[in-house]
Every structure is written in C-alpha cells, then in structure tokens.
C-alpha cells in the first residue's frame, strides 16, 4: 500500500510534470488561457496517461525493445483518437476551444516519458497508479496556471467575474508571451519554495553566484 501511495504521490509534488520535470510544456503554454480549458485538457491527459500506462504495462513483455517507441505511440494515438471522439460527442465547446492540442496529446512527452521510464518496467497496478498521479498533478498545474492567467487576463475565474467592475483586464496574461512569463514566474516561485524548504530542514541549498562588486570589475568603485 505504501508503495502504491509513493508512486501516486510523486506525480503530485516530487516529479510534478510541468513544473518540476518541465515536461509537456506545449499544452501548458497553449491551452491555459482559462481555468476551464486547462482543467479539460488535464482530464483528457489523465485518461490517456492512465490507459496508456496500463496498456504498455500489459504488453511490456511482448513489445520488442527495438521498436518500443513506435509501439508506445501507436497505443497513445489510439487512446487519443478515442478521447477526441468522446470530446466531440459530449463536450463539443471544450473540443472547439482546445482545437489541435487534443490530437497533439499523442506527442506529449509526459505520455511517452511515463511509458518509457515507468510502465515498460513495472506491473499493471503500479503503472496505473503512476499514470493517475502524474495526470492529476498535470491537471492541477494546468488549472492553476489557467486560473492565474484567466484571473488577471479576463478578470474571471471559471467564467465567473471575480475582479471588481472597474478592473481593466491585463490582457498580456492571456496572450502568448504572458504564458511564458507566467510559467517562468511560477517556476521561480517553486524554486524559492524548494530552497526555503531545504533550508528549514537544514539541507544544503544551491546559492546564487556572488554579486559583489569585485566579481565584475568593470567600474572603478
């Protein structure tokens, strides 16, 4: 049981896909204009990731090692097509919002990364739990990023107006550069938090290079 929990929880913080291992950045940057979009994309990824992990784990003994990447992609692609069809049937507005990024889940490096690094070496139950944890971590990150961008860029959260009436939307956040800036700020915030945590536990922390005047030597102060 504790092993299952360990595999599940590493996707939530230790190996959090977009922020800790910085994988799957394409949807992180592209579909997080609103919290809704991020959440929907995350759900699709949870489904594909868990199922592909299970399938890869089932077939791990019979997949020839030399063509394993192609096999993983075939498995992921079939799952993504089924997700796409399901979305068209039951969540068409979301499908229109996400557009090309639903088919692009196939080449999302989290799917391939978990299949290669975990599912192809571990039994079915562990792989399923691993995929579920990673997917949930991914969904939380996307929803959080989408929520921040939506809150400042449109003044709303999940479509409800949060900001006061005279708030002028900071549209930079929902444009493409806003995604990069927001992701960078969140990564730096995570780094600050991690080093603060390490310092509290008394572990060694990587410090920034020195900024004394003599390390530069340009001016004559």
């Amino acid at each position: 049981m504790s092993k299952l929990w360990k595999e599940f929880s590493k996707g939530l913080w230790k190996d959090l896909p977009p922020f800790k291992v910085v994988l799957g950045l394409c949807p992180v940057l592209a579909v997080t204009k609103t919290a809704d979009n991020g959440f929907g994309m995350g759900l699709a990824v949870i489904f594909v990731l868990t199922m592909s992990n299970v399938l890869v784990s089932i077939f791990r003994k019979i997949i020839p090692p030399k063509v394993r990447i192609a096999c993983f992609i075939v498995i992921a692609a079939s799952l993504v097509v089924s997700v796409e069809l399901l979305m068209q049937a039951f969540a068409y507005p979301l499908y229109q919002q996400l557009g090309i990024f639903v088919p692009l889940i196939v080449v999302n490096c989290i799917i391939l990364g978990r299949a290669e690094a975990f599912a192809s070496k571990n039994p079915i139950l562990l792989s399923a739990v691993d995929g579920l944890g990673m997917g949930i971590g991914f969904t939380i990150s996307l929803t959080l990023l989408g929520g921040i961008r939506e809150l400042f860029g449109y003044g709303t959260l999940f479509g409800t107006r949060i900001m006061p009436e005279h708030y002028k939307p900071f549209s930079f956040m929902v444009e493409a550069p806003g995604a990069f800036v927001c992701l960078g700020l969140m990564l730096s915030a995570m780094n600050i938090f991690t080093s603060w945590q390490a310092r509290r536990k008394g572990q060694a922390v990587l410090d920034n290079p020195g900024h004394e005047c003599r390390s530069c030597g340009i001016c004559s102060r």
Binding site: R214, S215, C219, S220, R221
Partner: peptide, 13 residues
C-alpha cells in the same frame, strides 16, 4: 591579490 582589470579609467555607472 585581486582579479584583473587593475587599471580603470574612472568611468562609473
């Protein structure tokens, strides 16, 4: 002991 440059022209930021 210090790192070069050792001579400065006096310009500062």
């Amino acid at each position: 002991v210090s790192v070069p440059p050792h001579a400065h022209c006096g310009r500062t930021f």
